[in-house]
Design a binder for these strands. Structure first.
Lengths: 143, 143
DNA sequence: ATAATAGAAGATAAAAATGTCCTTTATTAA
DNA sequence: TTAATAAAGGACATTTTTATCTTCTATTAT
């Protein structure tokens, strides 16, 4: 469904969101451990998300990643779009470039509904919401 | 959503299904052209599907690929499972190996429904059904 | 100011997915 | 029985994705 990169991105964002609520900043190493992802790899991913404004960061001692109020309102759809693009939401299920209503692939209409469900699900899912359950140990980001 | 391999596989299967209805067999080259896919690559894919019994084939002159009655009843879910495995249907949305009801990832329940929708959609979609619309030029397998 | 810290950025490496070529084997028509 | 045909199978090449390492830059505390 999502690329590995995107899976890491979502997990990292949820973790950062939880830590940000108390005004803390989190370092790469801590994030890597918390979500069980390769350190240098999520570093890259977060740099990317940082450039795109989905996460905030500060260099130097006491620095690290964090989420401003606004960023913790961002949806999973925002993250997926930033990392994997909108192919999942708008692309043809069979990979046809010119598939559309007028000239549909065989599974076009079946797929349309499912795609919309996925989009709505991801659009409704706000990063900030997840951190509560995570804090209560009701959900997990590892293994 | 699906791997490229899987997209080609589905497109090829639908094309073969349509040609099989009149008892014809179709060669690799014709299939490659019809679905606009790399010839040697779908050759590999069809060999794989053939070994797994999802498509039938015969060597030699007048040989090629075709579908027996039974095979044209196969679902998209069967093809996806054969090529991409069941990760899409059963795997965790965030890539966690041990994600489950007791120990869910943050998006576990949201994902569950969507996954089931996808599975039901693909399970209901039988290869044979698509060939009718394809024949009437109501749907397309290229570009 | 300076040293220590931590992310940013560029380069490189490994693995997986995708795509191609060549030889072998089975089948058929003549 | 032979020559032509077409899939099967093995090997190889390319591209994309995933992962790692090193150097540079900004920030902070002292």
């Amino acid at each position: 469904m999502f690329s590995k990169t995107c899976e890491y991105a979502i997990r990292a964002m949820i973790f950062i969101a939880q830590r940000s609520k108390t005004g803390n900043r989190v370092g790469i190493k801590e994030i890597a451990k918390a979500i069980d992802a390769p350190e240098y790899f999520i570093a890259k991913i977060l740099q990317d998300l940082s450039r795109k404004g989905l996460v905030q960061s500060l260099k130097g001692p006491t620095g690290g990643f964090f989420l401003e109020e606004e960023s913790s309102e961002c949806s999973l759809a925002d993250i997926v779009t930033a990392i994997d693009g909108d192919k999942l939401f708008t692309g043809c299920g069979l990979g046809l470039k010119n598939c559309n209503e007028k000239r549909p692939c065989p599974i076009h209409s079946e797929f349309k509904k499912v795609r919309e469900d996925i989009y709505n699900m991801l659009e409704d899912a706000r990063i900030g919401e997840f951190s509560k359950q995570l804090e209560k140990n009701l959900t997990f980001l590892k293994r």
